[in-house]
């Protein structure tokens, strides 16, 4: 569609653009992901906060037959978001969030509670920060930073585990590919 539009040479960022490689901090309590998108920051900001846009991309990668049953988002400071998916053989998953800071189009900060099953969110949230920087000719470089709560808290255990895994990810890669 944009084949006729000349674009800035992104050759140095091709790998980054094509990857959602998640990098863990040394203490395993936060992770970061950097990615570029082919539109200016305001467009990308909207894609992350507008329910109609979220419905398009958020369910991507979920198993076939998954259904995004709830998708609400009010992107103002103190506003809430709520997504729910029903995933075959896994049941219901929900993301409950409160936007803690909105600085359109540069930054979104939110506290998020992820729950599995039909239960209310409890315990400390993960703190998520998305920043959007203009990049090249009409592109955006996004940085997603996720700070995990107290590792002792069982309610957030699965997310902790995801993070914990990666501090030894190189070790594992080496082992499993041997």
């Amino acid at each position: 569609m944009n084949e006729s539009t000349p674009r800035t040479d992104l050759s140095t960022l091709d790998a980054r653009r094509g990857s959602a490689r998640i990098e863990l901090s040394d203490d395993g309590l936060s992770y970061q992901c950097v990615r570029t998108f082919g539109a200016p920051p305001d467009r990308v900001f909207r894609a992350f906060t507008d329910p109609a846009d979220l419905r398009v991309w958020f369910p991507s990668g979920a198993p076939a037959g998954s259904d995004l049953t709830v998708c609400e988002s009010e992107p103002v400071a103190g506003g809430r978001y709520h997504y729910e998916m029903v995933i075959p053989e896994h049941g219901q998953m929900a993301w409950h969030g409160v936007y803690t800071a909105i600085d359109r189009p540069e930054r979104i900060a939110a506290d998020e509670w992820f729950v599995m099953g039909d239960v209310d969110p409890t315990g400390p949230p993960t703190a998520q920060t998305l920043t959007f920087e203009p990049f090249g000719d009409g592109f955006t470089m996004m940085t997603m930073q996720v700070d995990l709560p107290d590792p002792e808290d069982p309610e957030t255990f699965m997310e902790q585990s995801a993070a914990g895994l990666t501090s030894s990810l190189n070790t594992m890669d080496e082992l499993v590919s041997a």
Partner: peptide, 24 residues
Amino acid sequence: AHDWFASFEDVWQSRFDTLDELVS
């Protein structure tokens, strides 16, 4: 553990590819 974490990254990869397609 490796497989589980890889699936987690795959989901974000897939989401971001779709998001990129949308905004582009």
